[in-house]
Lab assay of single mutants.
Amino acid sequence: DENEERIRAFALYKGIDPEKARELWERGEINKDDEEKAWREYK
């Protein structure tokens, strides 16, 4: 689903483990601007 892809995109963008990215996502600790930037680059 799209959230999974967004988490993966963010992990790649930040160079972090996707599981770590998922934890940040679930806790609401992902910066929305960074997340959008990562998503645009990923697509």
Rank of each mutant, 00 (worst) to 15 (best):
F10G: 03
D1M: 12
E41D: 10
R6M: 09
Y13K: 02
N3Y: 15
I7W: 13
A38D: 02
R22I: 03
I7H: 01
E23I: 13
E2R: 11
E35S: 11
K32E: 11
E36L: 08
W39T: 01
K37L: 12
R27S: 11
R8E: 06
D1Q: 13
K43W: 12
I7Y: 05
R27P: 00
E19N: 09
E36D: 09
I16D: 00
L12S: 10
A11N: 00
E4L: 10
L24M: 15
K14L: 15
E23M: 10
Y42R: 03
E29H: 05
E2L: 13
K37A: 14
Y13G: 01
I7C: 12
D33W: 10
R40C: 14
L24H: 03
R40E: 13
Y42C: 11
L12V: 12
I16P: 00
D1V: 12
W39Y: 07
N3A: 13
K14E: 06
G28S: 04
R8A: 08
R6Y: 06
R27F: 04
D33Y: 09
A9D: 03
E35T: 10
A21G: 01
G28C: 11
R22S: 02
E5H: 09
I30Q: 01
E2C: 15
E36M: 06
Y13F: 11
W39D: 02
E41Q: 12
E29M: 12
D34H: 02
E5D: 09
G28N: 06
G28P: 00
R40P: 02
R27A: 13
K20E: 14
W39I: 05
A38E: 02
E5T: 06
E19Q: 12
W39Q: 04
A38S: 11
R27N: 13
E5Y: 06
I7T: 00
I16H: 00
L12Y: 13
D34S: 03
A11W: 02
G28H: 04
K43L: 14
R27W: 05
Y13A: 06
D33T: 08
E19P: 03
A38K: 04
G15W: 01
E4Q: 07
P18V: 15
E19A: 12
G15A: 05
K14D: 01
K20A: 14
A38V: 03
L24T: 01
D33H: 08
A11R: 00
Y42G: 04
N3P: 07
Y13D: 03
W25E: 00
E36I: 07
A38H: 03
P18W: 14
E41Y: 12
E26I: 12
